[in-house]
Design a protein around this nucleic acid. Sequence first.
DNA 1: GTCACACTTGAAAGATATTTTCGGCCCGGT
DNA 2: ACCGGGCCGAAAATATCTTTCAAGTGTGAC
Lengths: 304, 304
Amino acid sequence: MKETFQRHAGTSGAAPPAPAALAAKVRTLAPSMTRSMQRVAEAVAGDPAGCAALTVTGLAELTGTSEATVVRTARLLGYPGYRDLRLALAGLAAQQQSGRAPAVTADIAVDDPIADVVTKLAYDEQQTLADTAAGLDTVQLGAAVTAAASARRIDVYGVGASGLVAQDLAQKLLRIGLIAHAHSDPHLAVTNAVQLRAGDVAIAITHSGSTGDVIEPLRVAFEHGATTVAITGRPDGAVAQYADHILTTSTARESELRPAAMSSRTSQLLVVDCLFVGVAQRTYETAAPALSASYEALAHRHRR
Amino acid sequence: MKETFQRHAGTSGAAPPAPAALAAKVRTLAPSMTRSMQRVAEAVAGDPAGCAALTVTGLAELTGTSEATVVRTARLLGYPGYRDLRLALAGLAAQQQSGRAPAVTADIAVDDPIADVVTKLAYDEQQTLADTAAGLDTVQLGAAVTAAASARRIDVYGVGASGLVAQDLAQKLLRIGLIAHAHSDPHLAVTNAVQLRAGDVAIAITHSGSTGDVIEPLRVAFEHGATTVAITGRPDGAVAQYADHILTTSTARESELRPAAMSSRTSQLLVVDCLFVGVAQRTYETAAPALSASYEALAHRHRR
DNA sequence: GTCACACTTGAAAGATATTTTCGGCCCGGT
DNA sequence: ACCGGGCCGAAAATATCTTTCAAGTGTGAC
């Protein structure tokens, strides 16, 4: 196994494998899986209860693969081996059993009435939030918070839809008195990254994990000794190699009418909010007065 | 196999072993157990989660008995063997785990551990989404969609946090081939608003409903005959008087560590997404190819 | 178009865990 | 005290899981 991935495999954790957020994890990791592993993952996500009843050999036969592949898949999902995946599966099945699946899972169609669109979108975004929260590695998050809270300066990189998230984070951090900037222009981003040094923090936001325009400034920051954080839906993507801490966003299924940007944005914003609140907690003494100060300064901009 | 055990296995009913009612079964069968089996049963009933993590040998050692006894106990409880008991145990543990979830209503405190922050934020945002979806007037939304779908040009106004939402909407509309622009600069916004006329659409986004910098361009657009839409948390605010259609966002309680910008943003984004999907539906013929075109154009920006 | 490389995959060997077997031991009855 | 019945655990037998390794497969370079 590659060193790179070895390290990131630890992302999900030395801590606990994964209790309920299995479907989410499958979606997140699916792109980095090989064909046969995807078949296994799919079977597992589709019928947890059924798979929990199968032995390694049984599941291998069911999916038309080999035992080795099943074990590999279990590993990728964050478990020490198939045995543990199976236990988690049993747990998941029990939860579903008692929880009564809501099942509004239908996709949005071209001729859906507008009221259905609202319901489905709201449901999907709620699901995305739940998945993200379940899949977020709090150790990594804590580390990122600690770094950011004491940073001399914070740079946030993001382009396209992620650029807005980057700006959102920077805006909020500014409000609590930190020195934070968002960069959407790749050239300026690199120019700024060069200025960073140890003690500074650089945060890259990219859903695909492979956006060159965002990776480049992060690499520069990384090489200049800054603490680097990646917020991405692909924890095994190219961006990971320059990230000290990786915060994984969840990847919801998408369709033509519901482009990836939508759920990835929701997921990214939750992560960013968590990061922000964490930092606000750590810097409460200065954050609280800064917040009210910025509020006061804007008050006169409102009519009445 | 011994006749004796075979018979007792039937106790639970030939069909399913036992899903949740394990503690009860232990009590029922305890009298018919031998001393060492009781020790095992006791351990299992007392700490399902802990025992689920143990192998047959581990549980035997923990209870000071042997593997054989553990297996015998599992049989007595109605399972084919220890393996299956263990699976049931994992399920039980998961159920118990999920059972004690809903205690997250508390506000975020300065000394909350990071894991709680994640849970609470996710929960709050989910709540916000549900509230927004419930409170959204689909008639108004439908009217706004109709206007936007056939607009010659769409302007979106928003400053501060709402400015990002405005940009998000404009970005997405651009992607499906519409002419949409977001304006954060009040002066430029007004300058652009002057150019609008009947058939065009102007959208103002303001949580407070009283942000002068956003109301002003909307007023200008309104007076030039454009169709105007307000996305606001205060449908009775100043912005309403220049809005043909009002889309109401929900206002969640907020606290010092959770500024209003957070939940209002979530709410605004849902509304904006609904608007977008609605428009995409109406213009599907042109939207679909435009989407894939913009996707293609950006593909080379990704490494690997 | 061809070659070489890297990655994926399954068969089979190897390691663990579970189940069964079997004999010793404890306990009550005579 | 001796005998018989059943409980119990050590170790063998089996099933299951994990690792290794070599062959297959697609991909990119030239």
